[in-house]
């Protein structure tokens, strides 16, 4: 039987997280289908149909999915579940929201945030903030899986899948979407950026994050933050990198004024190169940084911007 991947999108663009989840699904060795639930999401369907390894795109285009919530998404996925033996979603805040509902209704455990497909029924996943890796084997029956997208390379856009319309499922009517406040930014998304520059408590204020933004703009980098900086109100919650925030694995992660608490490291330690600027020579971040600069960030960051200009950035 085939595997079903639930697409993540905003009705206009298919998120990168989907292509990465497809990459994980392909490794299971079964045909891969994608479910796009949205409204007026034609462009998303086209993009999904191009993902390499995808055989079919199921489309549920309905007002109910314009702003999907867990209850409506779970009902839709369950209406299709008979046709699949594996259901996968990216481990984003939306995938984490609806997929356990699906697993519970199917009476199967969910395997959260897989890092690696060992075989069709065996997976690696992080526990204890990534300080240990668990290898788990699923029992026979349906498998419900969320995928840590930073652990997989996105499927290429070289395919051409068939498209099938599916009916909306009934709305349990117990919850409704009210509104959203999304951070607007011209910069790349944190989880897919090649370079991320993050600030911690050391930045001392939200105003000071502008220094990082200037550098980020030169490098086409995303800006992130430690929990301490978010808790202090310097930047919004969606900046948070860590065990309970976003997990990133860019080519280059620059940690500025971040001491390196375990839960922060959990969110970035799989970055290819880690660079750290901190005035405290003993800061734990230096134990995992490939390149460290012990310096006052208020001098170092403007200097970095200047030097980058000289280098032609």
């Amino acid at each position: 039987m085939a595997a079903l991947v639930i697409a993540e999108h905003d009705n206009k663009t298919l998120k990168d997280a989907t292509a990465k989840t497809v990459a994980a699904a392909v490794q299971l060795g079964a045909p891969v289908h994608i479910l796009v639930a949205g409204q007026g999401c034609g462009a998303v369907v086209d993009a999904a149909a191009k993902l390499a390894g995808v055989e079919k795109v199921l489309v549920a285009d309905d007002a109910l999915y314009a702003r999907p919530i867990a209850e409506t998404m779970a009902a839709l996925i369950l209406s299709l579940a008979d046709r699949y033996d594996t259901i996968l979603a990216p481990a984003t805040t939306s995938g984490k929201n609806y997929l356990p509902r699906v697993a519970a209704k199917l009476d199967v455990p969910q395997i959260s945030e897989i890092l690696k497909v060992v075989s069709a029924d065996t997976f690696e996943r992080p526990i204890y903030a990534g300080n240990a890796i668990q290898t788990v084997q699923a029992a026979a029956g349906k498998k419900v899986i969320t995928v840590r997208t930073t652990a997989f390379k996105a499927a290429a856009s070289t395919g051409s899948a068939a498209i099938e319309n599916v009916a909306a499922a009934s709305d349990p009517g117990t919850a409704k979407f009210v509104g959203e406040t999304l951070s607007k930014s011209e910069r790349p998304e944190l989880t897919s950026a090649k370079i991320v520059i993050s600030g911690g408590r050391g930045l001392q204020s939200g105003e000071n994050f502008k220094m990082l933004e200037k550098v980020a703009d030169k490098l086409h980098a995303a800006v992130g933050a430690s929990r301490a900086a978010v808790d202090a109100g310097f930047v919004p919650n969606d900046y948070q990198v860590g065990q309970t925030g976003k997990v990133v694995a860019p080519d280059l992660y620059i940690a500025v004024g971040i001491s390196g608490a375990i839960q922060h490291l959990a969110g970035m330690k799989d970055s290819k190169v880690i660079a750290a600027i901190n005035k405290d020579e003993e800061a734990p971040i230096f134990q995992i940084a490939d390149v460290g600069l012990v310096a006052d960030l208020f001098k170092a960051v403007p200097e970095m911007e200047e030097e980058l200009s000289k280098l032609g950035y």
Binding site: F177, V178, E180, D238
Partner: peptide, 9 residues
């Protein structure tokens, strides 16, 4: 708290 910011339901 969602990936893009905040959502109210």
């Amino acid at each position: 708290e969602i990936d893009g910011g905040l959502q109210t339901i």
